[in-house]
């Protein structure tokens, strides 16, 4: 079933194709049916390549070399992990731009098992230069990120998920990719990434902590993190990421390299869970439910 973010992606992309004549949309069967109408309208710019993910990225690179602005879309494991060398060479090394839009996230397809889950996508892209990585927590954020990416020419990854927050925290207080302050406190700072923000707010209820919201993690907003930590004696940072735990710990360490700090990276565990079930059950298994997060955060801060 298509989630709300993916539906919005289809809707907005279809609209953008009408106004951006260099924009192209590439699929490898997954979601292709959702673009059937757009394909009829723009047969040269809406292309379904069949189940060929290496070609998906290669074609995106080749189209960009011809002056097009390609969007390539599939589920995260088939978009990022399977054709990773194509991302490195056909996009980065050719010095061209592209927009990669994934669905499925870390465990949206919980019942699909390991093959359909991609907790490592952001960590993988973090090994390459130049990528803007968006982890929208709401369909409105995904839409804004997509519109901006379509108008630009850089390398942009938009990680859609069926998990979402009630409100679009990332659109509060004007534009920009910077972190938003959701709550202020003095005992520590929790950075909530994308769809985990509402869970983090619930988990930190009554705790004296600052909660930052990150809808974009690359580039990492070191300036805002440093600013909220400026008046805290000891910099204590908890990262809560909806993908591989610790993915952005190096970014926090770099941001705070000139001052003593402690950092805890929470996220999807490194081990395979080898269970099916629901996304909620997987969140709990990885300690990403509100109770699990609260325990981890309290233990780290050493406060009750």
């Amino acid at each position: 079933m298509a989630g709300i973010m993916r539906e919005r992606f289809v809707e907005v992309t279809t609209e953008l194709l009408a106004t951006h004549d260099r924009l192209a949309l590439l699929t490898a069967d997954l979601s292709a049916k959702l673009f059937a109408g757009a394909r009829q309208e723009y047969p040269d710019r809406v292309l379904n390549l069949g189940i060929r993910e290496q070609l998906l990225i290669g074609v995106a690179g080749g189209m960009a070399l011809a002056g097009m602005r390609p969007i390539a879309h599939s589920f995260a494991p088939f978009l990022i992990e399977r054709p990773f060398e194509q991302i490195k060479l056909d996009l980065n090394h050719q010095d061209v731009g592209a927009i990669l839009v994934s669905a499925g996230a870390s465990y949206d397809i919980a019942g699909g098992g390991r093959s359909h889950q991609s907790p490592g996508d952001v960590a993988l892209l973090s090994t390459l230069p130049g990528w803007t990585v968006h982890v929208p927590g709401h369909a409105d954020e995904a839409e804004a990120q997509l519109r901006e990416a379509a108008a630009g020419d850089g390398l942009v990854y938009i990680r859609l998920s069926n998990q979402a927050n009630e409100r679009a925290h990332g659109l509060a207080g004007g534009g920009g990719h910077g972190f938003r302050v959701l709550r202020r406190g003095s005992a520590g700072t929790v950075v909530a990434v994308g769809p985990l923000a509402d869970t983090v707010l619930a988990a930190t209820g009554g705790l004296d902590v600052t909660v930052l919201y990150a809808g974009t993690v690359r580039p990492f907003d070191a300036a805002t993190l440093r600013a909220v930590l400026a008046d805290q004696d000891e910099a204590r940072v908890v990262l809560v990421e909806p993908y591989l735990a610790g993915t952005s710990v190096p970014q926090v360490a770099a941001a705070l390299s000139d001052r003593p700090h402690r950092v805890l990276g929470l996220g999807v565990g490194h081990e395979e869970v080898r269970h099916y079930g629901t996304p909620r059950q997987h969140a709990i298994a990885h300690g990403l439910g509100s109770a699990g997060l609260r325990l981890s955060i309290i233990e780290f801060l050493g406060t009750a």
């Binding site: 290669g58 074609v59 690179g61 080749g62 189209m63 070399l65 097009m68």
Partner: peptide
């Protein structure tokens, strides 16, 4: 694969 993309582009 790049050339296929360029031809399409």
């Amino acid at each position: 694969p790049l050339a296929v993309g360029t031809a399409l582009g």
